[in-house]
Structure formats: C-alpha cells, structure tokens
C-alpha cells in the first residue's frame, strides 16, 4: 500500500467519523426538540407567540410539524388539526366577504373576522397562524395567496393576478383608503389613459368601489381590501 492510499483511507475515515457525529448530534437535537415539544405542549397550543417561535425553531432544524397530519408531530401536538380548522374557516370568510371586497382581503381584517368567529375558542390565533394555515391551503392548489402591497399583507382568494400597475395603485390607496385619477397621474407620473385603464380593471374585478358623492366632483376609487372597514359577513 502506498502512501497515497493510506492518506485516502485516513481521509475517508475522518469524513465518516464526522458524518456519524453530525448524525448523532442531529438525532440528539431532534429528540430534545421532541422532548421540548412534549413538555411545552400546552404552551404551544395556547400561546400564539410561543407557537410562532416553536415553528421557527423547527424550520431551522428542518422539521415541519405540519408536513403530515399522521406524523409524529401532528399527533403529539394536535396542531395539524388546528391549522386544518383555521384553513377551513379562512376559506369560509374569504368566500363570504368576496362580494364586498372582490376576493382580496387585508390579513389583519381576516384575522379579526377569524377571531370573531372563534370567540368561543380559548386558543388565540395570531397573524402568523393565519399565514401558516394559508400556506397549507396553497399546497392544495386552492389559489389562495398572500401578496404584499406596501406595508400590508393581503390575502387573495381569486385567481386574478395583480399586475405592477394595480399593486402601485393599491399601495397609493393605503394612505387614505381611496385614490382619484388625478392623484394616480400625479403621484405615479402616469398618463391619464394608463391610470383610467388600471382603475377600470380594478372596478371590473370587484376590487374597487366608486364614490362620486364628494363635493369636489372628483370620482374617488375606494378599495375595501385596504380601507380598514370590517365587513360584517353577509347574513342575508
């Protein structure tokens, strides 16, 4: 055996030892994570802030507690059912408010409506929980998606793609809840044709509502998805 072969074998050994060690460390870590989860089960279920931190910790070590409903984690924590239920309720709310907001709803408002609906439940729901439940809906190909417009997160439940122009208008509208054609032209430096086109599309999609009652005579385009008007879920 020559020197070169000896070096190679030594190298392989070292590599194997290191892999084994890492595997062992990871296994220890996982079992500790499991033990942690078991110990803090009720905190995870009841405290949304704690739950969110736990999710973050899991993500770092490559564990997805929501990956399978039959999995160890879901069984241990029962959180699979929790998110499944949230998902169903989110779909319900999005459908019920769609005639009013055109299928685009403020995440904050969605959460408020969700809490109203679950008020009998002791377990609190955070925006983070909503986002997780929605990401699970997305996997099912339901067309649910979270879009960021300016500082806000909006939940989209219709297949309409918002183009860049629409996004910019929605962002502009966040300040007052509405925009005028003038304002869009001026603030975004668009031609009036471009502004009117984009606003008309938003009207057609049911995302905008027109208000021609102001004394200055200018049409105002309001957006229920960014105006913080809570919709009472239609009962008639």
């Amino acid at each position: 055996m020559n020197l070169q072969d000896q070096y190679r074998m030594l190298g392989e050994n070292v590599a194997k030892i290191r892999t084994d060690m890492m595997k062992e460390q990871l296994a220890t870590f996982r079992s500790q994570l499991e033990e942690f989860a078991r110990k803090h089960k009720s905190d995870i279920r009841k405290n949304p802030a704690f739950r969110s931190q736990f999710h973050e910790m899991c993500a770092k070590v490559g564990v997805d507690p929501l990956a399978s409903n039959k999995g160890f984690w879901a069984e241990l924590l029962g959180i699979g059912d929790f998110y499944y239920e949230l998902g169903v309720q989110i779909v319900d709310i999005c459908l019920a408010t769609r005639p009013h907001n055109g299928g685009l709803i403020n995440l904050q408002e969605l959460c408020n409506l969700l809490r109203q609906r679950r008020k009998s439940d002791r377990e609190a729901v955070s925006e983070d929980d909503c986002l997780r439940a929605i990401s699970k809906l997305k996997v099912m190909g339901s067309g649910f998606e979270v879009v960021s417009v300016g500082k806000r997160k909006l939940v989209r439940s219709v297949p309409t793609e918002l183009n860049k122009d629409h996004n910019e208008i929605l962002e502009l509208a966040q300040a007052q809840g509405f925009v005028t054609v003038d304002e869009v032209e001026r603030r975004l430096s668009w031609t009036s044709g471009r502004a009117i086109d984009a606003l008309d599309t938003l009207l057609d999609e049911g995302l905008a509502m027109i208000d021609d009652g102001h004394k200055d005579g200018k049409h105002r385009y309001w957006f229920p998805c960014v105006s913080s008007i809570s919709t009472s879920v239609a009962d008639t």
């Binding site: 509405f178 049911g206 509502m209 009652g213 105002r220 229920p224 809570s230 009962d235």
Partner: peptide, 28 residues
C-alpha cells in the same frame, strides 16, 4: 354596519357583482 361609514356605499356601483352586494347590504 361598517358599510354605513364607507363613502362608496352611497354611489350605485357600476360593477354588477359589487352592486348586488351593495343592494343587499342596504336592505340589511
């Protein structure tokens, strides 16, 4: 209801789906 404080509630909406929702909100 919240719509009562929403200015476009007082303009008849051109989008027919939105209008249907508006009319039923007024009725309620």
């Amino acid at each position: 209801p919240p719509q009562y404080s929403f200015p476009p509630f007082y303009t008849l909406q051109p989008n027919l789906t939105t209008r249907a929702s508006q009319l039923s909100s007024w009725s309620g």
